[in-house]
C-alpha cells in the first residue's frame, strides 16, 4: 500500500470515528434513588390512598454536562495527533472498526518521490505573510555610477603582520638662544696666568 493510500485510509477512519462520537455515558442512579428508607417507612404510616408520585424522567447526561462543542475543522496536524490517540488497542467489542495496520516500507520498496513540474503550482507550505512575493517586478537598471554608490563599501583587507615598534616622531627643539652659557675661560697662554688661576681657588 502506498503512503497516499494509507493517508486516505486514515482520514476516512478519523471521519468515521468523529461521526461515531456520542455523549459520554452517565452512571445509573435509578436503583439507588428508588431504595426505600426503612426508618422513614417505620415512622410514617403508609397511606395507601395517596397516589404514588410519578418519577421524573431521567435527565440525559447531555443536559447536565455542557453540550459538546462542535469541533472545529481539525487541521492535518490535529488529525494526525488524534489518529495516534484513537489508534490505541482496538476495542474488542467493536468488530466493525478495522484495525490499523501500519506498514513500513520495505528496504527494497522505492521511496515516494513527489515530482513537481511547476514550482508555482505546488502547494505553499509557508504562512502567507512569510511567503515570498510571487511576482517580482524587475527594477530599472541603475546607472553605473549609482550602482557603484549603492554598493556597500568593501572592507579594507586586513593583513596579519608581525607587530613592530612604531616610533613616534618628535620634533627637535630649536633653541632660539645659546643653550649653554660658556663659563670656561680659554686656556691660559702664559705660565703666570696658569698659576694665577690655580692659586685663586678656594674652598667652596
Amino acid at each position: 500500500m502506498s503512503a497516499a493510500a494509507q493517508i486516505a485510509k486514515l482520514e476516512a477512519l478519523l471521519e468515521r470515528i468523529q461521526s461515531n462520537r456520542g455523549d459520554a455515558p452517565t452512571p445509573y442512579t435509578g436503583s439507588l434513588d428508588a431504595a426505600p428508607d426503612v426508618e422513614a417507612t417505620m415512622e410514617a404510616p403508609l397511606d395507601l390512598d395517596e397516589p404514588l408520585p410519578t418519577p421524573e424522567p431521567a435527565v440525559p447526561a447531555s443536559a447536565l454536562i455542557a453540550a459538546p462543542r462542535r469541533a472545529q475543522e481539525p487541521t492535518p496536524m490535529e488529525r494526525a495527533v488524534s489518529t495516534e490517540l484513537d489508534l490505541g488497542p482496538a476495542d474488542e467489542d467493536d468488530d466493525d472498526e478495522p484495525e490499523l495496520e501500519i506498514s513500513y516500507p520495505e528496504p527494497d520498496e522505492p521511496a515516494l518521490l513527489l515530482e513537481v513540474d511547476d514550482p508555482s503550482e505546488s502547494t505553499p507550505t509557508a504562512p502567507v505573510h512569510t511567503r515570498a512575493p510571487d511576482t517580482v517586478r524587475p527594477e530599472p537598471a541603475p546607472e553605473p555610477d549609482v550602482l557603484l554608490d549603492s554598493l556597500p563599501p568593501e572592507p579594507e583587507p586586513q593583513l596579519e603582520v608581525e607587530p613592530q615598534p612604531e616610533r613616534i616622531e618628535l620634533a627637535v627643539a630649536a633653541p632660539s638662544a645659546p643653550i649653554a652659557k660658556v663659563v670656561a675661560r680659554p686656556k691660559p697662554k702664559t705660565f703666570g696666568e696658569l698659576l694665577d688661576r690655580a692659586l685663586a681657588l678656594r674652598p667652596r
Binding site: K189, T190, G192, L195
Partner: peptide, 9 residues
C-alpha cells in the same frame, strides 16, 4: 718665566 708660554716653563 711668568710671561713665558706654559709649555716652555
Amino acid at each position: 718665566v711668568l710671561d713665558a708660554p706654559v709649555e716652555t716653563v
